[in-house]
Design a binder for these strands. Structure first.
Lengths: 186, 186
DNA sequence: GTCTATAATTCGATAGAC
DNA sequence: GTCTATCGAATTATAGAC
């Protein structure tokens, strides 16, 4: 009982450390030893709880975009709502957002890339379908991904100065017109 | 002399193999052994010619975007010219384009990320300055990077189906309106 | 200029004591 | 449930023969 409780805490600590490491370094450069050190436990505990590095990665990547219901949103406001939603989620601690964790690894890891495709197919496209209808939703989802993941890439991962230095509000203002153009021309 | 000639060919073969590996797997997963195998030579030759994995990486990353002179281009056509330029370069063999090689590694490797920042600061921003003026160029360059790297990311690296399945012409048509909105609102 | 052999690390994973 | 000890594999890098 005391053991099980501590076990749960240990497991949570491992997951938290794993997300940070995967977010900061991607899959390949993240080591079980490093995760264990951050969590303050022995590396073998990671194996005990998760079996392998790959299953730990899998467990660290439960991505829920928590997209709001877009059904009532006018098409004209859709772009701003979407940009604001993602920027606000990312501004706190980027290393804490599962989508950014996933992005960092998805570029060189096929399992992570597959998960990314799944996230957009099962969360973004359906949410857009409520406004645009099912036919346009898939294509629009792809173009939304291009712009929002492009933003995540340049601002949080590559940190291109002109993009990284903008305030959160300025980012929303800068991205909204282009995403609007995309959604209206789709 | 015969030796030097062969040496030059070997060096070129190593560079070609290195670019392919770095493009396909990123920095961390690319091994000197793998590069040497592709080039048909011994791993130690790679060390002899380039000294270390990091310097080989550096040598493989000479990026020249070959941007055309934009001075005569009307602002209204700028977006289409830019999108078409990059898409045409990428469509042949994505693994052959230095910018995509760089992108794959820049997400987890700080040296590559720095190189990416340098490429946009020294090539994209100056080219845009010819049309938009120097004040708007830096910011515009960042937003152009967001969209074009976003495209490279979703189409060639993540291969999100809705984006990956478009024809090259459809990509140009889909991206132009949003990039146009960005450039006009900047 | 090219290759063999190997040093020195580092990592994921396993076995087993407590 | 937690840790010690270690295996086996893979990697970068070096030394030196030819």
């Amino acid at each position: 009982m005391a053991g099980e409780t501590r076990g749960g805490q240990t497991k949570a600590a491992i997951l938290r450390a794993a997300r940070e490491r995967f977010a900061a370094q991607g899959y390949e450069r993240t080591t079980i030893r490093g995760v264990a050190a951050d969590a303050g436990i022995d590396p073998s505990m990671v194996m005990r709880y998760f079996g392998s590095k790959e299953r730990l990665f899998d467990a660290a990547l439960a991505v829920d975009l928590r997209l709001p219901d877009l059904a009532g949103v006018p098409v004209g406001e859709l772009a701003q709502v979407l940009v604001r939603h993602f920027v606000e989620r990312w501004e706190g601690d980027p290393a804490d957002d599962a989508l950014l964790v996933l992005l960092r690894s998805a570029v060189t890891n096929e399992a992570a890339a597959a998960r990314m495709r799944e996230v957009f197919a099962t969360q973004v496209a359906p949410a857009l379908a409520a406004v645009l209808g099912p036919e346009r939703a898939a294509r629009a989802g792809g173009l939304v991904a291009t712009q929002l993941l492009g933003l995540a890439l340049t601002r949080y991962l590559l940190r291109l100065p002109p993009v990284a230095e903008l305030s959160a509000e300025a980012v929303v203002a800068a991205l909204t017109p282009s995403l609007e153009a995309t959604l209206l021309s789709t």
